[in-house]
């Protein structure tokens, strides 16, 4: 019998927090050029006063007043980090994905692929409804398009710009708007833990079957939080269209939101790649299941008993 200690039950959370903490420590402590005090105070100032200008204290001289009015205050608090992060993303971010893919290759070589032994393929169980599949596939399509159009900006040096790159960049904004309802639908559909709170016919129909593994729960939480951050920051940046006369009133907010957009995009990408590996590569049969909505009963018995249990309880 497998021992069930606190560590074994929660090692996914512990390792994720340790990993993020380590990366955060290295970046915050040694790489980022950010005034963290300003970074923390500024959003509180916006929320409490509604003033987006970024002027946290009254100017003490004409010079300060003019700088605030003409250029926006505290240029050195966020802008240098935007420049550094843009260059870093251009030059080094793909190494993060190379490293992650290398980890997946190692895991594939070590653990292989889980394959269910199916002797009776005609005995199938409906797992995903048409609504579930529509939400999942539309999310896959739109997120893929967002990744392509987003990296078109990040890695603009590779394309060298031009009309196609311009079209892709402008599509990114539109696609973000399209993704908003899809992200919301996915958040509802994939909120498996909601079954603890709601157990009615609607939640049984709406929410995906089964329960989360710790890593699955982490991916879901990252998807929800980072998706919300991406949508809020992206749409706000777009809505606050640069205007010659409102520059100093909004530029600091836009810089702040762009930074949030950068960070959220890296985190969501990292965990989405993890999700794609664990669903599509590490386990055989999920692609067909996501297309048809049906899985062989034996597949579920062997690889996803929680899903089968949920379905049978519903009956």
């Amino acid at each position: 019998m497998q021992s069930s200690t606190f560590f074994t039950r929660n090692k996914a959370y512990i390792f994720t927090l340790l990993g993020l903490g380590l990366v955060g420590f290295v970046f915050v402590g040694f790489m980022m050029i950010m005034d963290w005090e300003y970074f923390l105070k500024y959003p509180l100032h916006v929320i409490l006063t509604g003033d987006t200008s970024g002027v946290l204290s009254e100017p003490t001289s004409n010079y300060q007043a003019m700088v605030n009015a003409a250029f926006g205050p505290s240029y050195n608090s966020i802008a240098p980090e935007i420049i550094r992060a843009s260059n870093e993303r251009q030059e080094f971010i793909w190494w993060v994905f190379v490293a992650e893919i290398a980890i997946f290759c190692f895991m594939y070589a070590k653990y292989g692929r889980k394959v269910a032994i199916v002797t009776n393929p005609s005995d199938e169980v409906q797992v995903f409804s048409i609504f579930h599949r529509a939400v999942i596939w539309l999310n896959i399509i739109v997120i893929s398009a967002l990744i392509i159009t987003g990296f078109n900006i990040t890695w603009g040096m590779r394309s060298g710009g031009g009309d196609i790159a311009f079209f892709l960049r402008s599509s990114h904004e539109m696609l973000g708007l399209v993704w908003l309802p899809l992200w919301f639908a996915m958040t509802l559909v994939a909120f498996k833990d909601a079954k603890i709170l709601f157990n009615n016919s609607l939640s049984k129909k709406l929410i995906l079957k089964g329960s989360y593994s710790p890593m699955g729960r982490i991916i879901f939480i990252v998807f929800v939080i980072m998706g919300a951050s991406l949508l809020f920051s992206g749409i706000t940046i777009w809505y606050l269209h640069p205007d010659a006369y409102t520059h100093s009133e909004f530029i600091q907010l836009k810089r702040y939101l762009l930074y949030v957009h950068f960070g959220a995009s890296v985190l969501i990408m990292f965990f989405l790649m993890d999700f794609v590996y664990s669903v599509m590569v590490a386990v055989k049969g999920n692609l067909k299941g996501l297309i048809t909505g049906k899985y062989p009963r034996e597949h579920l018995e062997q690889l996803a008993p929680d899903v089968l249990k949920d379905i049978e309880e519903k009956r």
Binding site: F71, Y75, A79, G156, G160, G161, F166, R169, A244, I251
Partner: peptide
């Protein structure tokens, strides 16, 4: 002809 209108220059520019 190269510009893709991403707006990064606006975020970096101290003068708007």
């Amino acid at each position: 002809d190269k510009c893709i209108g991403c707006g990064y220059c606006l975020f970096a520019c101290p003068f708007g």
